[in-house]
Nucleic acid binder design. Structure first.
Lengths: 207, 207
DNA sequence: GTCTATATGTTGATAGAC
DNA sequence: GTCTATCAACATATAGAC
């Protein structure tokens, strides 16, 4: 790996943590340099400006969702519906791990950057879409356990909504209970959907 | 009304709009002075610093929720369940009115301010709690139309979650559809709860 | 590619006359 | 209470030697 690639990687890693902990605007280039032990020249040799660091960070989230988020969350969980709640359990764990200061990095950036460049906004949107898309695949795998008229895309987005809203309220109140109650409500939602599908089974081919 | 009170009111109003449009960190004192046509001396005569302007803004949201948000949303809507969706419809209207750039001012500030002063955090929490509390009152008014074991506090928070998540995704994708699908899912949730309560009516006193 | 020094602008906040 | 002028700190980004 070339030295520049290493430098780039160190910057992206440090910026990822700093943007998550302090936000984009409150993170200075000096913060990134301090954490990476690099000099301004090195950073500006790799990135034209601060926004390009943000873009690289969002690309890293996009490219790492499978390996860094879904894979560890779904370790040993095969049932597609339970995978949804296993992912939410992982967020719960992160909330506890950070003393209820955890914020979803994508969600926080999405709300912090009010007049974001189209490239940045697209990357935020792609990150959301991939997250919800992963849930949607679980819902597809659940097949006819869900009612036939279930909008699986909408339900995937709904799970993302519950995560974001739960994380937001838990952080603001410094209390996981707000996240837990949201997940409980979502569990009730799924229970009712599954019960409805069980009461009115799908027409089987040949009926 | 004393001149200072007028000055204070103008600053709070301007800051409210600016924090909503640009965020707290990206709004400078100069922005506020420019919009209010005031000078630095006047602002710092009323407020010790920028954070105190934020506190005043959050207090204004807290004190205005009934008059500025709930009252207009519930004009002519009496059914407690429909009031919930009328409030969400008002958010939909704001999303459209802003070309899908609308962000909930409280939610945005809650995620932007990573290391907020306890006073600020409490005010954010109170704003959330009052919003969810207003929904909870609707749910209480719905009485036995909802299942007896329904956690009405949790469900009120859940409605807030759906609003925040829907607004967040709609803004990021610049597409109301994301908000609409979230509200639809919540409608399904309520329909299932109401149907469940109708199937298993509450034990009536004397049964 | 990396270093140091620095340009250039903006920030929140203050001083002191009126 | 309001005005103007200004401070000190910090921001992003650049220049040019090595």
């Amino acid at each position: 790996m070339s030295p520049a690639a290493d430098t780039r990687g160190r910057i992206v890693m440090a910026a990822m943590e700093l943007f998550w902990a302090k936000g984009f605007n409150s993170t200075s280039i000096a913060d990134i340099l301090s954490r990476t032990q690099l000099n301004a020249g090195s950073l500006y040799h790799v990135f034209p400006g601060k926004q390009d660091v943000l873009i690289a960070v969002l690309e890293a989230y996009r490219d790492g969702i499978e390996e860094n988020l879904l894979k560890p969350a779904w370790e040993g969980v095969d049932d597609p519906i339970e995978r949804i709640f296993a992912l939410l359990a992982r967020y719960r764990w992160m909330i506890l791990e950070t003393d209820c200061t955890y914020g979803c990095p994508i969600g926080s950036l999405a709300l912090e950057l009010h007049e974001a460049d189209p490239v940045v906004r697209d990357l935020l949107a792609v990150n959301f879409a991939n997250w919800a898309g992963a849930i949607e695949q679980c819902l597809a795998a659940a097949g006819d356990r869900l009612p036939a008229d279930t909008d699986r895309r909408a339900l995937g987005e709904f799970v993302l909504t519950v995560m974001e809203g739960g994380v937001m309220q838990a952080r603001t109140h410094r209390d996981v209970g707000y996240f837990d109650r949201g997940v409980d409500a979502l569990r009730t939602h799924f229970d009712m959907l599954l019960a409805r599908a069980a009461r009115r089974p799908e027409p089987v081919q040949g009926d």
